[in-house]
């Protein structure tokens, strides 16, 4: 359906914007390495099911793209364009996010099985993975426009999945409680950002926190 397609496209675009920003400016200033590491963890734990579960060629290719691009971005950030200045303000304690997501995945899952727990873990972790990045924005108080486009596209992906879930609930009777709940949590975390993005970036102002 259209929401799902738009969501996936937005997800794809967000990664391309980020890669393009890094490659062109040859800098990772203002981008949180911690958030990017969390995404590697999210994609690895959710998408490694492609080794034992086949959905479609589209699904497989997308999963491969997200796993490889996220690892590549972390590689660029650590080795190629290392930025100690940015690292110094990237101080969000992610071990709590990882630990909390792990505990929640043990409590909430569709089956107490390795693959299902990993899937649940990835959903919880994804819902909070942007926090180090937002935290960094808050500390610096401003961001490059491209960085804000990246965060917007990334947030739009999960937000667009919400109407997709409603659509699938009506048309197929399919309800994925875990994905829906964590998707809503994720969207709420982004809501503040969306608001500022709408009021400043889209009207041509610099991204500056009030």
């Amino acid at each position: 359906n259209i929401f799902r397609a738009a969501g996936d496209l937005s997800h794809l675009i967000s990664i391309l914007i980020l890669l393009n920003t890094i490659q062109k400016s040859r800098s990772i200033a203002g981008i949180s390495l911690k958030t990017q590491i969390l995404y590697v963890l999210v994609f690895l734990t959710r998408y490694l099911d492609l080794t034992y579960r086949y959905v479609s060629i589209y699904n497989t290719l997308m999963k491969l793209f997200f796993i490889s691009s996220s690892i590549y971005i972390v590689y660029l950030m650590i080795y190629k364009f290392k930025n100690t200045e940015t690292e110094q303000i990237d101080t969000f304690p992610i071990e709590y996010l990882i630990g909390g997501s792990f505990i929640l995945s043990l409590i909430f899952n569709y089956k107490f099985q390795f693959g299902e727990i990993l899937w649940s873990f990835s959903l919880w972790l994804e819902s909070v993975a942007i926090l180090p990045q937002l935290f960094m924005l808050q500390r610096t108080g401003e961001a490059r426009t491209l960085t804000t486009h990246y965060i917007f596209a990334l947030g739009a992906y999960r937000t667009l999945y919400i109407p997709n879930w409603i659509f699938r609930w009506i048309s197929e009777g399919r309800v994925d409680y875990l994905a829906i709940f964590t998707g809503i949590v994720q969207t709420i975390i982004y809501s503040d950002f969306f608001y500022i993005y709408y009021h400043r970036v889209l009207k041509g102002f610099k991204f500056e926190l009030p």
Partner: peptide
């Protein structure tokens, strides 16, 4: 029989 969700989304 318990129903499991098919993980067909990204």
């Amino acid at each position: 029989e318990e129903q499991t969700i098919v993980h067909d989304e990204l």
